[in-house]
Amino acid sequence: MTIWNRGRVISGESPLTDGRSILSSAALHVLLLAVLISVPIPRLASFEASTTLTLVGEVVDPAEPTPMIPTPTPGGAPGDLGGLGEIAVTVKGPGETANESALGRLLDEVLTTTGTDGRNPSTPPLPSTTGLGLLADDSVGGGGGFGGGSGGGRGRGVGPGTEFFGVKENAGSFAYVIDTSGSMARNRALNVAKAELLASLERLPPEARFGVVFYSLTPRFYERTLLPANPAEKAKFRNYLENVKPFGGTDHIAALRESLKLGAEVVYFLTDAELMTESEAEEVLRQVGSTRIHAIEFGVGPDLSTTNPLKNLTRATGGSHRYIDTNTFNRRSR
Rank of each mutant, 00 (worst) to 15 (best):
D138R: 05
A45R: 07
L32S: 11
S21C: 08
V288S: 05
W4E: 15
G153P: 10
L204D: 08
A77P: 06
I37Y: 07
K234Y: 03
L285E: 13
M1H: 05
F329E: 02
R20C: 07
A63E: 01
L106R: 02
S46N: 13
T326A: 09
A235F: 15
T291W: 12
G249E: 01
Y176C: 00
T218C: 07
E109H: 06
G76Y: 01
L275H: 03
G155N: 09
S24W: 10
S150I: 12
G133M: 10
T291K: 04
N308D: 13
R119M: 03
P78Q: 07
R8G: 12
A235E: 13
T51P: 00
M68W: 09
P125D: 06
A273R: 14
E278H: 06
R203Q: 15
G143E: 00
E58S: 10
P127M: 02
G145A: 13
G79S: 04
D137T: 07
R292P: 04
S333M: 11
L262P: 00
E196L: 02
E233K: 04
E283T: 13
E282H: 10
P78I: 12
G79R: 01
G85W: 08
N191V: 11
M276I: 15
D251W: 05
E207G: 02
I37P: 07
N120F: 05
E207N: 03
G118V: 07
Y215V: 00
V35Q: 10
L190T: 03
L44G: 15
R238G: 12
S14E: 12
T71V: 12
A185V: 07
P160A: 04
G57N: 12
V244N: 02
G211Q: 06
R186D: 08
G75P: 00
A208T: 14
L197I: 02
S200N: 06
T225P: 00
G93Q: 01
K92L: 09
T307R: 02
V213W: 08
L81G: 08
F146H: 12
L81V: 12
P72Y: 02
S38Q: 14
R332H: 09
T317F: 03
R220H: 11
G211F: 09
R119F: 08
G79D: 05
P42Q: 13
P309A: 07
S216N: 15
W4I: 11
G143Q: 00
A232Y: 10
T114E: 01
L36K: 09
A88Y: 15
P72M: 04
A273P: 05
G248K: 03
E278D: 12
T73I: 13
G161Y: 03
K311D: 04
V244P: 00
V9D: 10
R209M: 05
E283A: 14
G147C: 11
H321G: 02
T291S: 11
S173G: 05
V284Q: 07
L241V: 00
L217C: 05
V110D: 00
N308S: 11
N5D: 11
L275Y: 05
D272M: 03
V60R: 10
Q287R: 15
T71G: 13
E280P: 04
G147E: 06
P309N: 08
Q287D: 15
L31H: 06
R292Y: 05
V59K: 03
L44E: 15
D272R: 03
S173K: 04
D108N: 04
L33H: 06
R220C: 02
L197A: 03
V30W: 11
A102K: 09
